[in-house]
């Protein structure tokens, strides 16, 4: 080792032994520990964005004299949406949950006489039919044809499809908003708060209500159950004039769902 090198070691404070140990590591008899595969940092988890879908929606449209009705079953086969190019209940919506409620409404009276029809939700120019048997049989092809035929006859007749006493029951949007907000504040939100959830009233159009589920409800596997058995029941009990209730939550974008 040169004198200069030795002097620099003295001034830097490192001994020749240390240097030699680094340069020529002594092989140990001890077995080397296996490398922990989990010691490395996991790759950074990226946030998944949900893009805006620009696909055209299927609707029965056209300024034609002909009455056009399109049928679109839901993915789970439980419901079928009928889109008509004529108003059925303009600016309003109504749920016929059983035959008893159909009295005086030609639309409901006619459609409840079709076998396997369980409930009817009419909103503007659309009708959603739920069938008995849930997600199983019967298939919608034949049933939709029968419902479509009955609907066409009623629309062609040109008479009012919904009973006047139902129309008279529907209050102003202000009343609907006030009543629904009260149910959300006093019943619904205290109930879902235990799971870190919250419900927000986003829109009221006529007697149609749109909500958004946030916090622990967004993306939760039980959100559909909460919506149908909890929120729908609470709304309809407190405000029986409420028609369609829509959930506009983007559940796929939920970052804090209950049970996550």
């Amino acid at each position: 080792m040169s004198v200069i090198k030795k002097l620099s070691q003295i001034f830097s404070g490192s001994s020749s032994m240390e240097k030699e140990a680094v340069e020529n590591p002594v092989e140990s008899d001890q077995p080397t520990e296996p490398k922990n595969p989990f010691a490395e940092q996991p790759p950074v988890q990226r946030r998944v964005m949900q893009p805006t879908v620009l696909m055209e929606q299927v609707e029965a449209t056209g300024a034609t004299d002909q009455i056009l009705i399109k049928a679109q079953p839901s993915r789970d086969n439980e419901q079928c949406k009928f889109m008509v190019n004529r108003p059925l209940f303009e600016g309003r919506s109504w749920l016929f949950s059983n035959f008893e409620g159909a009295a005086g409404s030609p639309l409901a009276e006619a459609l409840f006489s079709v076998e396997s029809v369980e409930t009817l939700l009419v909103h503007d120019s659309t009708l959603v039919v739920t069938k008995t048997g849930g997600k199983g049989l019967p298939a919608w092809e034949a049933l939709a044809k029968e419902v479509g035929g009955a609907l066409r006859k009623l629309v062609e007749a040109g008479t009012a499809l919904i009973a006047q006493d139902i129309v008279d029951k529907i209050p102003t949007e202000e009343v609907v908003r006030k009543d629904i907000q009260k149910v959300i504040d006093t019943e619904v939100n205290p109930g879902v708060a235990g799971h870190g959830g919250r419900i927000t009233l986003t829109a009221v159009t006529g007697n149609t209500v749109t909500i958004e589920m946030g916090g622990g409800c967004q993306g939760c596997s039980a959100a559909d159950l909460t919506l149908k058995q909890g929120i729908h029941s609470a709304f309809r009990k407190a405000a029986p004039y409420v028609g369609a209730i829509y959930d506009e939550t983007d559940h796929a974008a939920g970052s804090n769902p209950y049970y996550s």
Binding site: V44, V48, M49
Partner: peptide
């Protein structure tokens, strides 16, 4: 339209 960066991916 959307903007992606090193922290995001899109479904």
């Amino acid at each position: 339209q959307l903007t992606l960066d090193e922290t995001t991916e899109v479904n």
